[in-house]
Design a protein around this nucleic acid. Structure first.
Length: 269
DNA sequence: TACAATGTTTTAAG
DNA sequence: CCTTAAAACATTGT
């Protein structure tokens, strides 16, 4: 389930292990989760190391350890981070378990679309460098966003919002929510939005992200009933704004939900 | 049974 | 070289 706010929520789950030493490492080294990663180096690098800090950047997570250990975590579609008691046995999809004296840090991912990376050294790993501007950072400007839309002018706006190089952290439900709140049809070409629409889009990208982080990321609460989110999967779901029957279709390779009343396909020229 | 799932990555085509 | 679309990935649930 992880998009921006859920990723932040999961990052904090491991917070209880901060400043604690890793006594042992248990992992499913042959699983796809570890593709391209030296699991022997990971085990050696983390055993005896202390968890010193963590950060989230879009959907990417980084956990920093003593002894120069950098653990990268991507939760994919079904990844989760949680805390278990010290001796709790690893379940079937618990692919990485870091044992500490007072708790265990667990990464699970049934579908294995997620990924674990590891790097040992003084400098940050290549995979953590050169990241795109975060949505709520000062570098994320309307100008930069419009430049990105121009670069992907012919693709549907829904597909462009899902590109992590432009909108790190936005996923399927956030893209639908942002477009619905902006009253923009998801199939509109990204390059054909009018200035008033890109302005609204820019504002909604930030407000949806900020609100989701506050409600889900900090408190694991429920998003407002007035949002599309709580209605988009209901069968026979209705738009919370105008009561119209919600539409569903395949846009940008993903199931997309929109309101035919609030979001008009295209106005033409 | 068949299809879809809050996501990338690879491959192919324009 | 760049953008876009579609398939692939592994597992579970409806």
């Amino acid at each position: 389930m992880p998009e921006l706010a859920e990723v932040e929520f999961f990052r904090k789950q491991w917070g209880r292990g901060l400043h604690c030493k890793i006594l042992s490492v248990e992992l499913h080294g042959d699983k796809k989760i570890f593709r391209g990663t030296d699991v022997k180096a990971l085990e050696k690098g983390l055993r005896g190391a202390t968890l010193q800090g963590s950060e989230a950047h879009g959907k990417q997570l980084l956990f920093r350890f003593s002894k120069g250990g950098w653990l990268g975590v991507h939760l994919g579609m079904t990844g989760k981070l949680r805390i278990e008691p010290p001796g709790a046995p690893a379940l079937k999809h618990d692919h990485l378990v870091l044992r500490q004296s007072r708790q265990s840090l667990v990464f699970s991912d049934p579908r294995q679309f997620g990924r674990i990376l590891f790097h040992c050294g003084k400098d940050q790993p290549a995979w953590w460098a050169n990241r795109p501007a975060e949505i709520l950072s000062r570098q994320f400007t309307r100008k930069a966003m419009e430049l990105f839309l121009t670069r992907h002018a012919r693709a549907p706006i829904k597909a462009v919002l899902l590109l992590q190089t432009g909108f790190p952290g936005i996923g399927n439900w956030m893209a639908d929510e942002i477009l619905w709140q902006s009253k923009i049809h998801p199939a509109r070409p990204a390059g054909k939005l009018r200035p008033a629409e890109t302005g609204k889009l820019f504002a909604k990208i930030q407000s949806v992200s900020r609100t989701a982080l506050r409600i889900v990321g900090e408190n694991d609460g429920d998003l407002p009933k007035s949002w599309l989110f709580n209605h988009r999967w209901e069968r026979g779901g209705h738009c919370p704004a105008d009561g119209a029957a919600l539409r569903r279709g395949q846009i940008g390779g993903r199931t997309t939900c929109w309101c035919p009343g609030c979001q008009i396909p295209d106005v033409g020229v």
